[in-house]
């Protein structure tokens, strides 16, 4: 195993982590401000990917597609908030889980209705295609580097938005005390819709970005959603910083685990048993990580505690 391979795998873990952050940030924001658990967040990711693919195919421009993914997901999120989610804030988590579970069914089948059962085509733009040589003899796909940069950029913007702007102050106030911001004369309905749309846009953006290198198909959002749950549980629900650290931790653990565990078992087993055992264990690794974090800190790394 060479150093170059290890560096490449670490970058892969980072890229996966950054993508998870985009998903987890929206989830954790929505939970932090509105106290809502949204299972349909994965559907917004799917909406982003489909919008990106449809617009990119129609116009021939990936960049317009990416804009479309943001807009479509934000719009879908806003509509969803106004029509359904708004009625759920005062309900218990159980109702929220169920209603958003119902929304997943509707989004998935609705998308299939609109776009058919065949996966859509979406490709990396010319300017970002191919691989680049990094120091240390590492060849790395340019597009993945771009995802890392874009993801970190969004993370910085998000921190600035929350730390430095009026909206951010309202969001933080909302997290701390919901009655207080109403007393401050903030239009709470508007704020909630805005936060929800922001979270949706982040998920849609992730969907558009990742759809280019994965398969744009119905049901693509749910596996990512579950990973995003793991991320925010590890990071602490409601904490953007926790989501960021948790996402990187999960991304890197998963990528390196899948790569290193079979090698590790190969040291004392025959090759095909080692890959089987290693792969089986690797697929459980992040859940084991989550269990460990919970044993030490039940509220997650940056959570307020429960």
């Amino acid at each position: 195993m060479s150093a170059a391979l290890l560096i490449e795998q670490a970058l892969n873990g980072l890229q996966f982590g950054v993508m998870l952050f985009l998903m987890a940030a929206g989830l954790t924001l929505i939970f932090g401000v509105m106290g809502l658990i949204n299972l349909a967040h994965g559907s917004l990711y799917m909406v982003g990917a489909f919008a990106c693919a449809a617009v990119a195919t129609a116009t021939g421009s990936f960049w317009l597609g990416l804009v479309a993914s943001l807009v479509a997901a934000a719009l879908a999120g806003a509509i969803m908030e106004i029509v359904v989610i708004r009625r759920l804030y005062r309900r218990d988590h159980l109702d929220q889980v169920l209603a958003t579970f119902a929304l997943i069914l509707m989004f998935s089948e609705g998308t299939r209705w609109l776009f058919g059962s065949f996966p859509l085509y979406l490709d990396v733009p010319e300017i970002l295609s191919g691989a680049v040589a990094l120091p240390g003899g590492v060849q790395y796909p340019l597009y993945r580097l771009a995802i890392i940069v874009a993801g970190i950029g969004v993370a910085i913007l998000l921190f600035l938005l929350i730390g430095r702007t009026r909206l951010g102050i309202q969001i933080r106030a909302g997290e701390a005390d919901r009655e207080m911001i109403a007393a401050l004369g903030v239009d709470i309905k508007l704020l909630y819709t805005a936060v929800f749309a922001l979270g949706a846009a982040l998920a849609g953006f992730a969907g558009g970005l990742v759809g280019t290198i994965q398969s744009v198909q119905v049901g693509m959002g749910e596996p990512v959603l579950i990973l995003a749950f793991v991320v925010i549980v590890i990071g602490g629900i409601g904490s953007i910083k926790g989501a960021f650290i948790g996402a990187l931790l999960v991304g890197i653990t998963d990528t390196l685990g899948r790569f290193l565990l079979p090698v590790f078992f190969g040291a004392f087993m025959n090759a095909s048993d080692a890959t089987a055992v290693g792969s089986a264990l690797a697929s459980m690794l992040i859940y084991i990580l989550m269990a460990l974090v919970l044993v030490v800190r039940p509220g997650g790394l940056y959570g307020a505690g429960t």
Binding site: I37, H93, I237, A280, M284, M290, G299
Partner: peptide, 28 residues
């Protein structure tokens, strides 16, 4: 493990543990 937490954490953690068992069953 899960009951160390509550509320929304509990929902997500039980989900995640079930996924862990699921992946184990798929790959074993």
């Amino acid at each position: 493990l899960s009951l160390r937490t509550s509320g929304v954490y509990f929902i997500m953690i039980t989900l995640a543990f079930a996924q862990m068992v699921f992946y184990f069953a798929v790959s074993w």
